[in-house]
Amino acid sequence: MAKRPNSRVIRAARTYTIDEAATALGVSTGTVRSWVKAGLPLMKSQRPFLILGDTLRSFLQDRAAGAKVTLQPDQLYCLTCKAARTPMGHMVDCIPQTDKTARLLGLCDVCGGTCNRMIGNAQIEQIVRIFSVAMKDGSTA
C-alpha cells in the first residue's frame, strides 16, 4: 500500500517547483502532476510553474481528510471494498499487537475479503458485547 505524503514537511511561506515538491514529499514528479490535474493550483505567470506551500499543504490535508472512514462500533474496515462493513456472522479474531493495542480481523459480509480494525486493549470488553471474539491464543472471549 502506498504511503501517504506528510504535509507537515511543506513550509507554508515557501514556493515549490514540481520537482522540489516531489522531493520534499518523497513522491514522484508524476504524482505531483496528477495532483495538479486533480485540482492543485499552480502559479503559471512564469516558468518554472510554482506551487504555493500553503496551498500544497491544504490540498494534501483535504485529500487525507476525505480518505478517512468513520467506523461504527459494530464495523470493521474492509480492505477490498475500502468501506466500513459488518463482519460475517459478527465473528472476529482478536490479535494482540502491542501491550496497549489489538487488531480485530473478520471477513466482509459483502465481498468476503479481510476486514480490519485496531483497538485499545481497554476496548476489548466492549467489543466482546458486540462480536463473537476468538483470541489469538485460542480462547474465546
Rank of each mutant, 00 (worst) to 15 (best):
Ser7Lys: 05
Val27Cys: 04
Gln126Glu: 11
Ile10Gly: 02
Thr17Ser: 08
Gln46Arg: 15
Ile124Thr: 07
Ala38His: 03
Arg47Ile: 15
Gly113Cys: 12
Asp19Ile: 00
Leu40Arg: 00
Gly66Arg: 06
Asp99His: 10
Gly120Pro: 01
Cys115Glu: 07
Thr29Asp: 03
Cys78Ile: 07
Ala67Asn: 01
Asp54Trp: 14
Glu20Thr: 00
Ile130Trp: 04
Arg8Asn: 11
Ser58Gln: 13
Gly120Lys: 05
Ala83Gly: 07
Thr17Lys: 01
Pro48Thr: 14
Thr140Ala: 15
Val110Ala: 13
Ile119Ser: 10
Met1His: 14
Ile124Trp: 01
Leu105Ala: 07
Lys100Asn: 08
Cys111Phe: 09
Gly113Asn: 05
Glu125Phe: 02
Ser45Ile: 11
Thr70Pro: 00
Thr55Asp: 15
Arg103Phe: 02
Arg8Leu: 09
Glu20Arg: 00
Asp99Ala: 15
Asn121Val: 00
Gly66His: 04
Val110Tyr: 11
Ser45Thr: 12
Arg63Lys: 12
Arg117Ile: 06
Lys44Ala: 08
Gln61Gly: 08
Ala84Ser: 11
Lys3Ala: 15
Arg47His: 15
Ala24Leu: 04
Ile130Gly: 04
Val27Asp: 04
Gly106Met: 06
Gly30Ile: 04
Thr86Gly: 08
Val32Gln: 02
Phe59Ser: 04
Arg33Cys: 05
Met1Phe: 14
Leu71Trp: 10
Lys44Arg: 11
Met88Leu: 08
Leu107Trp: 04
Arg11His: 11
Val133His: 00
Asp74Leu: 03
Asp109Glu: 13
Pro5Glu: 08
Ile95Leu: 08
Asp74His: 11
Val36Lys: 01
Ser7Ile: 05
Phe49Ala: 14
Gly138Val: 13
Lys37Tyr: 01
Ser7Gln: 10
Gln75Lys: 05
Met91Arg: 14
Gly26Glu: 01
Gln123Leu: 09
Cys115Ser: 10
Pro41Val: 03
Met135Gly: 05
Tyr77Ser: 05
Phe59Trp: 09
Val9Met: 06
Pro5Ile: 07
Ala122His: 10
Phe59Val: 05
Met135Pro: 03
Leu105Glu: 09
Arg57Asp: 14
Arg63Phe: 02
Leu52Glu: 15
Ala2Leu: 14
Asp99Gln: 13
Ala67Cys: 00
Pro48Asp: 13
Thr70Trp: 02
Gly120His: 07
Ala22Asp: 00
Val92Thr: 10
Ala67Leu: 02
Gln75Met: 10
Leu56Trp: 14
Val9Asp: 08
Lys100Tyr: 05
Cys78Val: 12
Ala134Val: 10
Met91Phe: 12
